[in-house]
């Protein structure tokens, strides 16, 4: 949930990147970190294994600028994608203001996408939430590869709530900022609505 420091005139929000193992969640954060100006970012922290698989989470604090006199800060987190790290995923998902679901477009990863999507719904439900109300964006990643599932099929299988979606090739930075922008917009619009706007 968001934290608004009225004294410091700061809005702080938490955005969680979710999806199956090796879908590109960490790559999204690395690309943002590499391309955003130094004054707008903090340290990129990765709690990963020796083989660079996410063990607990990645964390990147971003300063997106000022809106109506409020500094707007987003804390970006990734969850570990591997199936057996579910306990960690639940912990990181808690208090999220928004979710980016990163789907792997390769045919052979479609089942993992569905499994991770169901896992996201299940974990949100345990926290008394649902994707119907939690702001979320779907990123169809790895669209540059030859063996991808057609977009219409992925949309039909995953995008149950007609969420904003984007195509991406995160490793080349394509679609990464567009995804962040779409998610931040949803989160801020939701915050405005919650505050009675």
């Amino acid at each position: 949930m968001s934290f608004i420091n009225y004294a410091a005139r700061e809005i702080n929000c938490k955005l969680v990147y979710y999806g199956p193992g090796l879908c590109g969640k960490t790559t999204n954060l690395q690309q943002i970190y590499a391309r955003i100006e130094p004054t707008a970012k903090g340290k990129l922290i990765s709690l990963s294994t020796e083989t660079e698989r996410t063990l607990f989470f990645d964390f990147l604090p971003l300063d997106l600028g000022t809106i109506r006199g409020f500094k707007t800060r987003f804390h970006l987190y990734t969850v570990p994608g591997q199936v057996f790290y579910d306990a960690s995923r639940k912990l990181i998902l808690k208090g999220a203001d928004g979710v980016v679901f990163v789907a792997d477009s390769q045919i052979e990863r479609m089942e993992s996408n569905l499994e991770s999507w169901e896992n996201l719904e299940g974990n949100l439900s345990e926290q008394g939430q649902t994707l119907r109300t939690v702001p979320h964006v779907i990123q169809y990643n790895k669209r540059d590869l030859p063996n991808v599932v057609p977009l219409e099929e992925m949309q039909a299988a995953l995008n149950e709530h007609n969420a904003p979606w984007l195509e991406a090739c995160a490793v080349k930075g394509v679609g990464v900022f567009e995804t962040l922008k779409a998610s931040a917009k949803l989160v801020l619009t939701d915050l405005k609505k919650k505050m009675g706007g």
């Binding site: 600028g65 962040l180 922008k181 931040a184 917009k185």
Partner: peptide, 20 residues
Amino acid sequence: DLQNQLAQITDEDIENLLSI
């Protein structure tokens, strides 16, 4: 006061904020 200020946020404000 805070609610008033947040309610005044427009789509354009958000677009401008995210000039990333």
